[in-house]
């Protein structure tokens, strides 16, 4: 099977991956991925477990740097700038490409401190700025009304769904361009999932979102484009509607219709 380049024309992509290979030690987890992500749209990454979706996502903000013995070959560009070049500031990159994890991971601090954590570590001390950003981020993540009276209580007292939205608020507080989400709803109940999905549709106005999901309906509901990965290869990439109605590849069809994976 030959790896497929995306066959749709995307002008002005935010992120472009070009001939990307990724290795854990000597085992290759991603083979020659070519992908371009459209600006201010939602792209879903789907595929069976272990096919390399998370690995790919983590390449985009270089979270894989934290794992020993890994190697990236090929190029990833953010607005045309090479992400993997040695003189890029990883801190700045992660600020511009935020991330939300599968398991919500609030810090054991107050809700307020959680949201403004990114600003604090950037050295911003102005109280007015911090408060304004906090409110904006919480409103942006549709959490404000629920927590505005207990901003200074521990974030660990929130429900699972609230925690996940808090993590989204934390990510958007630093005003990134891209938000990466790795199965953000897999640990949530249906109601919380619906809220997060709603939120994603709202965030689409201002941010580019790349979301990994195992839930086909979710991908269909929230995304504009979908990429299907299989065993470290990008099999198919295209507008979500087209993918779900008329998949070009047998594997894609089988996966979407639930015949495997």
């Amino acid at each position: 099977m030959t790896p497929k380049t995306s066959d749709i024309a995307i002008t002005d992509p935010v992120i472009e991956a070009d001939k990307l290979h990724f290795y854990y030690g000597s085992s290759e987890a991603l083979h020659d991925i070519n992908l371009r992500f459209p600006r201010k749209q939602v792209t879903a990454l789907i595929g069976p477990s272990g096919c390399g979706k998370s690995t790919f996502l983590r390449c985009l903000n270089r979270m894989n740097d934290l794992i020993d013995n890994t190697q990236v070959v090929g190029s990833i560009r953010l607005n045309g700038t090479e992400v993997n070049s040695p003189n890029i500031d990883v801190i700045e990159l992660r600020r511009r490409v935020g991330m939300v994890f599968q398991k919500s991971n609030p810090f054991p601090k107050t809700i307020f401190e959680n949201v403004i954590y990114g600003l604090r570590i950037a050295g911003i001390k102005n109280k007015a700025v911090l408060e304004e950003t906090c409110e904006k981020a919480l409103r942006g993540s549709a959490l404000w009304d629920e927590v505005k009276d207990r901003l200074h209580q521990s974030a660990l007292g929130l429900s699972g769904g609230q925690m996940q939205r808090l993590c989204i608020a934390r990510a958007i507080a630093v005003n990134p361009e891209v938000i990466l989400m790795d199965e953000p709803c897999s640990a949530l109940d249906p109601k919380s999932t619906a809220r997060v999905e709603e939120l994603i549709s709202e965030l689409r106005e201002n941010y580019t979102i790349i979301i990994v999901t195992h839930n086909m309906q979710q991908a269909a509901r929230v995304s504009d484009h979908t990429a299907f990965f299989f065993e470290g290869l990008l099999v198919e990439y295209g507008p979500t509607k087209q993918m779900f109605l008329k998949p070009k590849h047998k594997q894609t069809e089988d996966y979407i219709t639930g015949r495997f994976g």
């Binding site: 903000n61 979270m63 934290l66 801190i91 992660r94 991971n105 954590y117 570590i121 934390r170």
Partner: peptide, 14 residues
């Protein structure tokens, strides 16, 4: 939990 570490780093902290 490892997630906390990653969460902090993903926000651009050293």
């Amino acid at each position: 939990p490892g997630g906390v570490r990653e969460g902090s780093l993903a926000l651009g902290s050293t």
